[in-house]
C-alpha cells in the first residue's frame, strides 16, 4: 500500500508499491497521448516552433476541453484567437509535467525536489480532471458519491474501477499538497 507523502529533512518523500507505480505510469501516459498535438503535414514549421497553431480549435472531447479551457466565458472568437497563440505551449507544459512525474516512478521510494513536487501535483491534477470527466462528476454531490467507493474488492466494472482509481489519485494528491503546503511554511 502506498504511503502518504510527507515533508521532512529529505524534502518531500513518498512510497508507492510497484503496481501503484505501474498504474500511475499508465495514467500519466494516457493523458500525455490525449494532449500530444497532432502533426499536420502542411504546418508552418516556424509557427510551430514559436508555439503558434493557426488550426487550433476548441476540443470536442470534454476531458480535453477541461484541460485546455476557453479563456473567455462568453467570447468564443477571443477564446479561439487566444487558443491559437497559447494552446500548443500549454499542451507542451502539461506533457512536460506528466513526463517528469513519470520519470520519477522508477523507484519505490519517491524523493521529490520542489520542482518535482510541482510537476507531480500538476500531473495528478490533470489525471483527476480526465477521470472525473469519464466518471461524469459534475458537482460536489457526484464527487461525494464517487468518493464512497473505497474498497478494491468492490471493483466489478469499468466505472467502479475508475472510481477507485480516481479516489486513489485524489488521496495521493491531497497528501502531496499537504506536504507542499508544509514546505511553504518552512520556506523550503
Amino acid at each position: 500500500m502506498a504511503k502518504a507523502f510527507k515533508y521532512g529533512v529529505k524534502g518531500i518523500t513518498g512510497y508507492l508499491e510497484p503496481a501503484e507505480r505501474e498504474l500511475l505510469r499508465s495514467l500519466f501516459g494516457d493523458v500525455v497521448s490525449m494532449l500530444e498535438p497532432e502533426e499536420r503535414a502542411n504546418q508552418d514549421p516556424l509557427a510551430a516552433l514559436v508555439g503558434l497553431d493557426a488550426e487550433a480549435r476548441e476540443p470536442s472531447d470534454r476531458a480535453l476541453r477541461r484541460l485546455l479551457p476557453n479563456v473567455s466565458k462568453n467570447d468564443d472568437a477571443a477564446s479561439l484567437e487566444f487558443r491559437r497563440y497559447t494552446e500548443r505551449s500549454l499542451r507542451e507544459s502539461k506533457i512536460g509535467a506528466l513526463k517528469a512525474a513519470s520519470l520519477g516512478l522508477d523507484k519505490d521510494e519517491l524523493v521529490l525536489t520542489p520542482a518535482d513536487a510541482r510537476h507531480w501535483s500538476m500531473a495528478l491534477n490533470d489525471v483527476r480532471l480526465v477521470l472525473a470527466e469519464r466518471l461524469d462528476i459534475r458537482d460536489d454531490e457526484d464527487a461525494g458519491h464517487v468518493h464512497l467507493m473505497q474498497d478494491w474488492s468492490q471493483a466489478e466494472d469499468v466505472e467502479s474501477y475508475l472510481a477507485l482509481v480516481y479516489n486513489f489519485t485524489t488521496w495521493l494528491q491531497e497528501s502531496l499538497v499537504q506536504a507542499m503546503l508544509q514546505s511553504l511554511e518552512t520556506g523550503g
Partner: peptide, 10 residues
C-alpha cells in the same frame, strides 16, 4: 468539483 481546496490554495 475536482480540484482540491488545498491545491487551489497552494
Amino acid at each position: 468539483p475536482v480540484n482540491l481546496m488545498s491545491y487551489v490554495s497552494y
